[in-house]
């Protein structure tokens, strides 16, 4: 029994020393490393976010590696463990879940690795160094005002929600409803999640149209779903009768607005968010410590009236 205890204790000590050795960050003259952990690379918006963050980190002299969480918090946890064990110096992070991701950020903080959230927040003010977030609520308030005006305060509509574990889903929905729900002539006949996914949005709307064929508009929590919804309407030959509203500022939707196919979107600025996160991480590693915990980034309404001022994910001339 005593022998077993000695073997067990020695094994634990060796393992602890080994992990401790792994956690030591490289400080041998090689470039420091930033990890970009993004919720998914299956959506072009997040590809822009991740690649801009990585590119800006490299421009600042860091090695940068992108990790795709595939919208899976468990996989995100694996990435964090990998990044911590491999000795990265900072993390640019796009969470999969506002509550579920807190533990991952806390682990990184405990390991001495600063985390900078991009686009999505975690519901804690003392784990990440700073959180750079799109002002989704205000963006959808502006969209809601435009929606009410375009429908002349009456009509039937469908809402397609994003991922239910993402605060952005609810910020956008609530911003929209904070306007639209004041108009009893506007009736929401269906509200369903399509997980921010184009194909799922197409399937969900096709199904909804079976029960509600005479809708006037669809509000989608992101542009990928807006394009999927538009596809469903084309298949049903209703695309000229039903207005589609999205959110993000993706290239295909900006072009579709120009062509009169999509009514409007909320333009986010993923490049600005990612660059700011990378810059903040760099300044942190240089010694700066006073960062605002939350930095909202204004979202701008893009419609047929002003689409010529915009390109995908930004403004002309940027």
């Amino acid at each position: 029994m005593m022998k077993l205890r000695i073997i067990l204790t020695t094994s634990v000590l060796i393992a602890a020393l080994g992990l401790g050795g792994c956690r030591q960050k490289k400080d041998d003259g090689e470039p420091k490393r930033m990890a970009v952990i993004v919720s998914t690379l299956n959506n072009p918006w997040f590809v822009v976010l991740a690649e801009t963050g990585a590119t800006h980190a490299r421009d600042l002299g860091y090695e940068a590696h992108i990790f795709d969480s595939q919208n899976n918090t468990a996989l995100e946890t694996d990435h964090f463990e990998n990044v911590i064990a491999s000795g990265f110096h900072a993390i640019l992070f796009n969470p999969t879940d506002a509550n579920g991701s807190i533990a991952n950020v806390a682990k990184a903080k405990a390991a001495g690795i600063p985390v900078f959230c991009m686009d999505r927040e975690v519901n804690s003010n003392d784990v990440a160094v700073s959180q750079i977030l799109s002002d989704n609520y205000s963006g959808c308030v502006a969209l809601g005002k435009y929606f009410v005006g375009k429908l002349n305060k009456q009509g039937k509509y469908v809402e397609l929600l994003g991922l239910v574990g993402d605060n952005n889903t609810w910020n956008r929905s609530r911003g929209f409803h904070s306007v639209v729900d004041n108009y009893p002539g506007l009736v929401m006949v269906a509200q369903q999640s399509a997980d921010f996914d184009r194909n799922k949005a197409m399937e969900v709307l096709e199904s909804i149209l079976q029960a509600h064929p005479d809708i006037d508009a669809v509000f989608c929590g992101n542009d990928a779903m807006a394009m999927g919804a538009y596809q469903a309407l084309v298949s049903a030959n209703k695309h000229k009768d039903v207005m589609v509203f999205g959110f993000d500022g993706a290239a295909d939707v900006v072009e579709s607005i120009r062509e009169g196919k999509i009514a409007a979107t909320g333009m986010q600025f993923p490049k600005l968010m990612a660059k700011t996160a990378a810059q903040n991480a760099h300044e942190y590693l240089q010694g700066k410590r006073d960062f605002p915990q939350k930095m909202p980034v204004a979202v701008e309404l893009v419609t047929m009236e002003n689409v010529d001022d915009y390109i995908a994910y930004g403004k002309k001339g940027e």
């Binding site: 750079i132 977030l133 403004k315």
Partner: peptide, 8 residues
């Protein structure tokens, strides 16, 4: 005044 970054 504005609470964050951006043009609005």
């Amino acid at each position: 005044n504005a609470l964050g970054i951006g043009n609005i």
